[in-house]
C-alpha cells in the first residue's frame, strides 16, 4: 500500500492464543523507516500481547514477523534486541544506583586492561558513549558519573531510549512512555520521539493519551478484543473517530 520502499517491520496475520482465549487474532501491520505508529485500544484489547509477540516475549501461535523483508522468529527478548527491536518499558528498566553509561552497557559492559593485565570495567568508554548518545538525543548532561536516580523522570526516560539508540535499535517499542511524567517532561519525550523519527527508526508507541498520540504519530492502529478495529492516518482522523473505534461505536 505504501510506496515502494522496503518496510522496516511487517507483521502478517499474527495470532496469539492462550488456551481458548484469542488475545490477538489475524493481525497485520507495516512500519516504514522513520514512521511512528500509535497503538490504541482499551485495556485487554491486545496491545500488550502484540508488542510482546513482536519483541520475543511470546511465541506467536500463527503468522509471521518480517524485519526488513526477512522473516524472523525470536525465542527470547534478547534475540529480538540483538536484531534491533528494543522495548522501552513503562517502569524504565534502569538500575537507579548506576550511572547513565553503566545503564546503557548493563549486561554488556566493556572491559579494558589496567597495567596491561588486570581486566577492569572500561568506565571511560561507558561515559564517552553515554555522552555521545545523549547528545544525539539532544540531551546534554554534565554529571556523567552521577547515578540516574539523581535525574528527572524525562531524563531517565531519555536514558532508557539512549540505551536502545546506542545498541542501534531499528524498531523502538514504547509502552506508555509519558504516563508517569509531568507535562514539561512529556514534551521532552515527544521531542525525543521526533529525533528518533528523523534518524529513520521505526517507532511503535502505546499510549492512552490521545493528545500525545496526535502530537507524534503518523498513523494510529486501534485494537479491540484482539483484532484490528481500524487504521487511520493521523492527518485524516479526529479524536472522536479514534474514540469511537476504541469503544466499538
Amino acid at each position: 500500500m505504501n510506496s515502494g520502499t522496503q518496510p522496516l517491520l511487517e507483521v502478517n496475520n499474527l495470532s496469539k492464543h492462550f488456551g481458548a482465549v484469542r488475545a490477538l487474532d489475524d493481525f497485520s501491520m507495516v512500519i516504514q523507516p522513520g514512521e511512528v505508529v500509535a497503538l490504541a485500544g482499551d485495556n485487554g484489547a491486545g496491545k500488550t500481547t502484540l508488542i510482546k509477540t513482536i519483541s520475543g516475549v511470546f511465541r506467536p501461535s500463527s503468522g509471521e514477523v518480517k524485519l526488513k523483508g526477512e522473516p524472523v522468529s525470536f525465542a527470547t527478548p534478547q534475540e529480538a534486541r540483538d536484531k534491533g527491536i528494543e522495548t522501552i518499558y513503562q517502569d524504565l528498566a534502569l538500575a537507579d544506583n548506576l550511572s547513565i553509561g553503566a545503564n546503557i552497557f548493563l549486561g554488556r559492559e566493556p572491559m579494558t586492561r589496567k597495567l596491561g593485565f588486570i581486566p577492569v570495567l572500561d568506565r571511560k568508554k561507558m561515559a564517552d558513549a553515554a555522552r555521545d548518545t545523549m547528545a544525539l538525543l539532544d540531551f546534554h548532561v554534565s554529571r556523567m558519573e552521577a547515578p540516574v536516580s539523581n535525574f528527572s523522570g524525562g531524563q531517565r526516560q531519555a536514558v532508557a531510549i539512549g540505551r536502545a539508540v546506542y545498541w542501534n535499535a531499528q524498531i523502538l517499542i514504547m509502552d506508555e512512555p509519558t504516563a508517569a511524567l509531568g507535562v514539561p517532561e512529556q514534551r521532552k519525550v515527544i521531542s525525543l520521539i521526533h529525533q528518533l523519527k528523523k534518524q529513520g527508526r521505526g517507532i511503535i508507541f502505546i499510549s492512552h493519551n490521545l493528545q500525545d498520540i496526535f502530537a507524534v504519530s503518523d498513523r494510529i492502529i486501534v485494537l479491540r478484543r484482539g483484532v484490528m478495529a481500524g487504521e487511520r492516518k493521523i492527518s485524516e482522523t479526529t479524536h472522536d473517530e479514534v474514540v469511537k473505534l476504541m469503544v466499538g461505536g
Binding site: P77, Q78, R81, Y89, D91, L92, A93, L94, A95, D96, N97, L98, A102, L106, G107, R108
Partner: peptide, 13 residues
Amino acid sequence: AIGANVKAASRCG
C-alpha cells in the same frame, strides 16, 4: 544492578 532493580537487570540480559 540486581540490588537496585532485579527486573531491569534481568531485562538487560
